[in-house]
Amino acid sequence: MNQVALIWILAEKDLKVEYRSPQAFLNTVFFALLILVIFNFAFDPGSQATREATPGILWVALLFPGIIQLNRSFQAEREEGTLYGLILSPTDRGVLFLGKFIANWAFLVVVDFLVLGAFVIFYNFSFSVQMLWVAWIIILASVGFAAVGTVFAAMLSSIRTREVLLPILLFPIIIPIILAAVNGTQEILILEEAQFLDRWLQLLIAFDVIFVAAGFLLFDYVVAD
């Protein structure tokens, strides 16, 4: 069986499991909505200062709840030892990573689009072409986030304090992604001229390529005894 088909089989399995037991999905969505609501109450919705802070608020609501899913993706594999089942199979470990990463990425994108919809309503934006650009940034940023998150979640899955450790380890590594995503979103939503948008998008793509390649190459060591 070719490697692309194997990647799809692994990702499809994860998505099917998540679809049939959607606790992580619901928790992630509610946590994200809660963040949007809290910021909505905390700041004056009509002020210019709040308007300028909205890109940051959006990315806090997108990134922090994503940790729930990343933790859950490997915790579930540990509960019945299914990670060992995967490791014992002759499937290349890099392929295992790609399957898991694609499932996590697809999950995050679906959640993020729902959150983006709520964000538009809560903060008085309109569903316009601008939002398609924000959606494009979300797609790109989620790739790097899911890639690094998948590696760290696998690494920490057997550790009792993984829920605490994952964000502590993950966020410093993805600072370039956060920087590019927030600034890119600010250019689209707040600034009148998008001078550097291309550069932020290029930065996101570069980090996506680096992180996915690193995950693919390192996963063998990550899951080794």
């Binding site: 019945e80 060992y84 199979s89």
Partner: peptide
């Protein structure tokens, strides 16, 4: 690795999948 079949304390099975889906999944792997 593919020359060994391993039954451990844990089942290595996905509770959310059916018996058939579990076996088909591993068969494909």
């Amino acid at each position: 690795r593919d020359r060994v079949g391993y039954v451990s304390h844990q089942s290595f099975l996905y509770n959310e999948l059916t018996g058939l889906e579990n076996l088909v999944f591993y068969g494909r792997l």
